[in-house]
């Protein structure tokens, strides 16, 4: 009896981690995209980036709410999103990288969308009904993100000499954060085995194919894969996360425990 109970507890803990890290990915990336509001190269693109950011906030909220439910300690979406320390955030490093110029933002979003697109599609057949439902909604959204960023990659890569050079630099700067997308740690393995999670390592070929097809049309090349950075899933971040959190958490930290 107690044995079974422990297994459930353990897998709940794993599920909690798994959902939470996905939520962190979406929150941090949306926080970055939100910084573009009012700053985009055209008004039309200003609205487009905000649309993507809003999709991501929506996904983050659904995931945090579910994580809180799985954890069962009464923490709501905001407590999870705002009230943790730096080392407790488990988002992928690429999501916290600075916006840089428009080329960097587009490459970052393109890399992530090319990954999340097949990720969510597979998650749609998760044994976990809640994750499957979140995936069904998210996969439609991310398909558009991928389409939109692909169009930009093509235009900026095959635009002017300056835009091409900026794209090359953005690809060079962000390439080292793409290895982490496909890592399978113990949490991900356990989730995969229980039919809940997605085999991220298995998405690599599709990601490469998608990315390379578009880059080719953009007269760009995927930089050689050198050393890949890692650490987001264990809370070892780049220096950027702390600054993101200092803004994100400002209100909740200054006025603890209030309702807004």
């Amino acid at each position: 009896m107690s044995g079974t109970c422990e297994t459930i507890m353990a897998s709940n803990q794993t599920l909690f981690s798994y959902v939470l890290r996905l939520a962190d990915d979406h929150l941090i990336l949306s926080q970055r995209l939100g910084e573009w509001c009012g700053e985009a190269p055209t008004l039309e693109e200003d609205l487009a980036l905000a649309n993507i950011a809003l999709d991501l906030i929506g996904q983050a909220r659904a995931l945090y709410a579910y994580a809180g439910q799985v954890e069962g300690k009464g923490r709501n979406e905001d407590q999870l999103a705002f009230m943790r320390y730096e080392r407790d955030y488990q988002n992928l490093l690429i999501t916290e990288q600075p916006n840089g110029d428009f080329a960097h933002t587009i490459v970052r979003q393109f890399f992530i969308s090319a990954y999340m697109d097949p990720f969510w599609r597979r998650m749609e057949s998760s044994k976990d009904e809640m994750l499957a439902a979140i995936a069904a909604k998210a996969s439609k959204e991310v398909t558009y993100h991928l389409r939109h960023t692909s169009e930009w990659v093509i235009r900026l890569g095959d635009g002017t000499r300056e835009s091409h050079e900026r794209m090359v630099e953005a690809l060079d700067d962000l390439m080292m954060f793409t290895g982490e997308l496909f890592e399978m740690d113990a949490v991900a393995q356990e989730m995969l085995q229980s039919g809940v999670g997605v085999d991220a390592s298995d998405l690599k070929a599709e990601w490469q194919h998608t990315v390379q097809t578009i880059l080719q049309e953009a007269t760009l090349e995927l930089p050689k894969a050198g050393h890949m950075q890692t650490g987001g899933r264990t809370g070892r971040h780049s220096e950027h996360l702390g600054h993101i959190l200092s803004e994100l958490q400002y209100m909740q930290r200054s006025f603890p425990g209030l309702t807004w």
Partner: peptide
């Protein structure tokens, strides 16, 4: 109306601006 350099981007802009 919207501004765009080409048809594909015009469709995206129309979607992002007018169907929110």
């Amino acid at each position: 109306s919207i501004h765009a350099t080409d048809a594909e981007m015009a469709l995206h802009a129309a979607r992002d601006v007018y169907t929110r």
